[in-house]
Simulated assay, not measured.
Amino acid sequence: MIRLEDLTKTFATPNGLVVAADKVNMEVPTGEICILLGPSGCGKTTALKMINRLIAPTSGRILINGEDTSKLNDIELRRNIGYVIQQIGLFPNMTIEENICVVPKLVGWDMKKAKSRAAELLDLVGLDPRHFLRRYPKELSGGQQQRVGVIRALAADPPVMLMDEPFGAIDPINREIIQDEFLKMQAALKKTIMFVSHDIDEAVKMGDKIAIFRAGKIEQYDSPDRILAHPANAFVADFVGADRTLKRLRLVTAEEVARADAASAARSASVADVRQSLASSGERIAVVIDGDHHPVGFVTADELQGASGRIGDFAHPLPASVPVRADLRAVVSEMFAHDTMWLACTDDNGRYAGVVTQPAVTAALRATYGGANAGAA
Rank of each mutant, 00 (worst) to 15 (best):
L121V: 12
L121E: 09
L121S: 08
L121A: 11
L122D: 03
L124Y: 12
L124E: 14
L124K: 14
L124V: 06
V125I: 15
V125N: 10
V125D: 10
G126V: 11
G126F: 13
G126L: 10
L127E: 12
L127C: 13
L127Q: 11
D128A: 15
D128W: 09
D128C: 13
D128I: 09
D128Y: 09
P129A: 10
P129E: 08
P129G: 07
P129K: 10
P129T: 09
P129R: 07
R130G: 12
R130F: 03
F132P: 01
F132M: 00
F132H: 05
L133Y: 03
L133T: 02
L133K: 04
L133I: 04
R134F: 02
R134D: 06
R134P: 03
R134I: 04
R134M: 07
R134W: 01
R135K: 15
R135F: 04
R135Q: 11
Y136V: 00
Y136A: 00
Y136T: 00
P137D: 07
P137R: 00
P137Q: 06
P137W: 00
P137M: 05
K138S: 09
K138D: 04
E139G: 05
E139R: 00
E139N: 00
L140Q: 04
S141I: 03
S141V: 01
G142S: 01
G142W: 00
G142C: 01
G142L: 01
G143N: 05
Q144E: 15
Q144R: 04
Q145V: 03
Q145E: 01
R147T: 03
R147M: 04
V148W: 01
V148E: 02
G149D: 05
V150S: 08
I151C: 07
R152A: 00
R152G: 02
L154F: 07
L154S: 06
A155R: 07
A155M: 11
D157R: 15
D157W: 10
D157Q: 15
D157N: 15
D157Y: 14
P158W: 06
P158E: 10
P159K: 14
V160H: 08
V160E: 10
V160K: 11
V160Y: 08
M161N: 09
M161Y: 08
M161T: 08
L162T: 08
L162V: 09
L162Y: 08
M163Q: 14
M163S: 12
D164A: 11
D164Y: 07
E165H: 13
E165F: 11
E165Q: 13
E165M: 13
E165K: 14
P166A: 12
F167E: 08
F167C: 11
F167A: 06
F167R: 08
F167K: 09
G168Q: 14
A169H: 13
A169K: 13
A169Q: 14
A169G: 13
A169D: 13
A169N: 14
I170Q: 13
I170D: 11
D171H: 12
D171Y: 07
D171N: 12
P172I: 14
P172L: 11
